[in-house]
Design a protein around this nucleic acid. Structure first.
Length: 508
RNA sequence: GCGCCGCUAGCUCAAUUGGCAGAGCAACUGACUCUUAAUCAGUAGGUUCGGGGUUCGAUUCCCUGGCGGCGUACCA
């Protein structure tokens, strides 16, 4: 309940203190007092007969038979013409206009609705459906009840909220924009669809710890917290990979988790400190099996939420209906720079990288430089769905060495519209090799790479009990949704994106 | 983190060269029995993000802090 800020909270405080409050709020409180003497303002429930959607869909029979409807929602406007009043009432699916007539309702009831009810209030109306002269589907109201009084005004009706207010006060964005409500309902149905897909593929949905004594499974800086009773540092997970693999080791053969991960890094159009990640693991699979699964999943979602497997994303027409392009990491890079970097000496590579605009930092290994080059030269051009395969080993401490190529691992990333959507490996399952890789990471850490991974002894011990060959895949859910709803800003797909507190305390 | 731009009424936005701070919606008063950005007549509403400075005078110029947008860096 701690908020630093803002006149909004001060208003409430002022009210308790009996001081001045905003005139718009004062006016509504007065109406509330007057109304409260006549009718209950915050009743306990309302028996709805139809939603706005059901009313529109059932319109023919409902209007023909003069069926009574009981319909609740929020008042979005008031248009009065003296002794009649038109009030659009909005529920989750849309608006139905209520028609109030003085002759039908009587003096008192009509005054209540005309003078004492405000835009933003919730009411329930009862009446019969009809069409007005201008063909607007309406409810001819015979009775109504207040469901909740609002004491703050809704935003203005024909300009959109500012971007900041849309994110910061999502309830207003949702109240004012059907498009926003639909976008978040779409997010929900995408997630349901993902779950249906994995369930149908025989995967088990599981939950693993958010609070972890060691963070691992990805390269990122974590959030740190403290457990009082145990007096120990805990980290908010940056990935759930190492726990899901423990489940594979335990004998659960196909598992997935849709998890909130937390990374203590910069925020921008495509990054929120907490975000949703899908990870799945299947025993006996390799990365090629995982590639097939990923392609099926993404194609199915694109098919369900686009048309004919095609999606418009910004200026790009993305085609998911054809088999996804498959290129190798080194091959794509060779094409971009015009030479095979596999055989270029490290010193020459550094020179080349600098020429191409890569900022070389302390502790950057050869493979890290390759990765930077790839991000800079290749990724932006990967617009149509493309699998990039077989990455340098150093970048992938949890991936299995490539069966045919020395120095590479069996890994793929799926790129769409220039950004990485999914990442997958044939999972390393040789415990001694895994220990060596962790030790390599430790060396990198000591050489100055802040993101190198920690050695997880408990995980190694689990693997020493025997881990079957396993394919694993992680997919950025928020980005997937951005793609499907055609937005380039992650805030548009997060109900409550992280925002700095609005107003600092005036102590400083 | 860095750079650029912004912050004015409840909301969305104006304000010329530094010269009385405005509009639309919302609110309030009144008129109107099929309106739909309802209409018409009127009223009220401001610490111009906070702090400091320059100036006869600052929404405007300078310094500083906060928040936001965009770009960039890191990352998924």
């Amino acid at each position: 309940m701690e908020h630093n800020d803002s006149n909004q909270h001060e208003d409430t405080a002022d009210r308790e203190g009996g001081q001045d409050l905003h005139p718009l709020i004062a006016a509504r409180l007065e109406k509330m007092d007057e109304l409260g003497a006549e009718v209950p303002l915050y009743p306990y429930s309302f028996d709805r007969s139809h939603t706005s959607l059901e009313i529109r869909e059932g319109e023919g029979p409902l209007t023909a038979e003069g069926v009574k409807v009981r319909y609740p929602g929020r008042i979005m406007a008031k248009r009065g013409t003296g002794k009649t009043l038109f009030v659009p009432v909005q529920d989750e699916w849309g608006r139905i206009q209520a028609y109030f007539k003085k002759d039908d309702l009587g003096e008192d009831a009509f005054r209540r609705i005309q003078k004492l009810i405000d835009i933003g209030d919730w009411i329930g109306v009862e009446g019969t459906l009809f069409r007005t002269r201008t063909d607007e589907l309406s409810i001819h109201v015979t009775d109504f009840t207040f469901l909740a009084k609002a004491i703050r005004p809704l935003p203005e009706k024909y300009h959109d909220l500012s971007l900041e207010n849309k994110s910061r006060r999502r309830y207003l964005d949702l109240a004012m924009n059907q498009e926003s409500r639909d976008r978040f309902k779409l997010r929900s149905s995408i997630l349901r669809d993902v779950r249906n897909f994995f369930d149908a593929e025989g995967f088990l949905e599981v939950e693993t710890p958010v609070l972890q004594p060691l963070y691992g499974g990805a390269t990122a800086r974590p959030f740190t917290t403290h457990h009082n009773a145990l007096d120990m540092t805990l980290y908010l997970r940056i990935a759930d990979e190492l726990y899901l693999k423990r489940l594979i080791i335990g004998g659960l053969e196909k598992v997935y988790e849709i998890a909130k991960d937390f990374r203590n890094e910069g925020m921008d159009r495509t990054h929120n400190p907490e975000f949703t990640m899908l990870e799945c693991y299947a025993a006996y699979w390799d990365y090629r099996d995982m590639m097939d699964l990923t392609e099926r999943l993404v194609r199915r979602l694109a098919g369900n939420f686009g048309t004919d497997g095609r999606l418009q994303y910004g200026e790009h027409q993305l085609d998911f209906s054809q088999p996804f392009r498959r290129v190798t990491f080194m091959g794509a890079l060779a094409e971009a720079v015009g030479r095979d970097l596999m055989v270029v000496p490290t010193d020459d590579l550094a020179v080349l990288a600098r020429e191409k605009g890569v900022e070389l930092k302390k502790g950057m290994g050869r493979d890290k430089i390759l990765d930077e080059l790839f991000s800079l030269l290749v990724e932006p051009g990967l617009i149509q769905p493309t699998f990039v395969m077989d990455h340098p080993q150093e970048l992938s401490p949890l991936a299995k060495a490539h069966r045919d190529h020395e120095g590479l691992v069996e890994r793929f990333e799926l790129f769409v519209a220039g950004f990485e959507l999914a990442n997958s490996f044939s999972e390393l399952n040789d415990p001694r090799e895994q220990r060596r890789r962790f030790l390599d990471q430790k060396a990198l850490l000591e050489a100055g790479d802040e993101e190198a991974q920690q050695l997880d002894e408990d995980f190694l011990q689990a693997m020493e009990h025997g881990m079957p060959p396993t394919g694993g895949m992680g997919l950025g859910v928020d980005r997937l949704i951005m793609l499907l709803v055609d937005t380039n800003n992650i805030r548009d797909v997060l109900l409550f994106p992280h925002m700095r507190p609005e107003v600092s305390t005036d102590a400083g």
